[in-house]
Amino acid sequence: MTIKLKYELIVNSFKTIDGRDVNVHVHHCKPAGNTNIASSPTHIGWRGKSDGDDISLFGARKIWIDHCSLLFCADGLIDAIMGSTGITISNNYFTHHDEVMPVGTLTFQRRQH
């Protein structure tokens, strides 16, 4: 199955993007927006122009991105900003880009087992 989005996919807290046993490729993202989008099942609001990141996390908590391929985008492959915490990025493939992720803005937390 292929899903082609006209605008960015907004992912908020407590989500998993799991590419195990399937081909999850996020690629060729470009700045877009200046449109009304649904930010929840009951709210539609104005969204300004995006940066063109493959995955953008804004103030998100407890996100897991696993077994995905990220490549060719206008900005960073993964951008976690505005206090995003508890982000796990594991077993992913990053290619064809020179700005994978802004490590200085991420807060990594050690998982306790």
Rank of each mutant, 00 (worst) to 15 (best):
Y93S: 01
T95M: 09
S39Y: 00
H67L: 02
I63Y: 05
I17S: 04
R110V: 12
C68F: 07
S13I: 10
I55T: 08
T16H: 09
K62V: 09
T35I: 15
G45H: 04
N91P: 04
S56I: 01
C73K: 05
D18N: 15
V11F: 06
V103H: 03
N23Y: 00
W46F: 14
W46D: 10
D79G: 01
N34E: 11
K15A: 15
K30I: 14
T16Q: 06
W64P: 05
T2C: 05
I65L: 15
I65H: 12
S69E: 03
G76D: 04
F108M: 05
F14V: 12
A60H: 02
Y93T: 01
L70W: 01
D75A: 08
T107M: 03
Q112F: 14
S40L: 02
I89Q: 04
H43I: 07
M101E: 01
I65V: 15
K30P: 03
D66F: 15
A60P: 03
I17C: 09
I44C: 08
G48F: 07
F108A: 07
W64F: 15
N36F: 11
G33D: 10
I63C: 13
M1T: 07
P31Q: 01
R110E: 09
I87V: 15
W46A: 11
S69Q: 06
H67Q: 13
L5Y: 12
G76W: 00
I55P: 04
D51C: 03
G59E: 04
T105V: 05
T85V: 14
T95V: 05
T2S: 02
S84R: 06
Y93D: 02
A38Y: 10
T105L: 13
T105K: 08
R47P: 12
T107S: 07
G48I: 05
A38W: 12
T105G: 00
K62M: 11
G45M: 05
I55V: 14
H67K: 08
I44F: 08
S90D: 06
G76K: 11
K4V: 14
G45C: 05
L106V: 08
D79N: 11
P41F: 15
W64G: 06
T107P: 02
G48V: 09
R20A: 12
W64H: 14
K6I: 13
I81N: 00
F94Y: 06
R110C: 08
E8W: 05
I78Q: 02
F14N: 14
N23Q: 08
K6M: 13
V26T: 08
S56E: 12
H28D: 12
T85K: 08
D18C: 10
S90H: 14
W46L: 13
I81P: 02
C73W: 00
W46E: 07
Q112H: 12
R47V: 13
V100G: 02
H28M: 09
V22I: 13
F108C: 00
C68G: 06
L57E: 07
W46M: 11
F72T: 15
S50H: 12
C29G: 13
R20N: 12
E99C: 06
D75K: 06
N36I: 14
H25F: 07
G104I: 11
I44D: 03
K15Y: 09
G83W: 02
P41V: 04
V103F: 13
N23P: 08
E99P: 01
T42L: 00
K15I: 15
T107V: 10
V103N: 00
D66N: 12
A74M: 10
G104Y: 04
G76P: 01
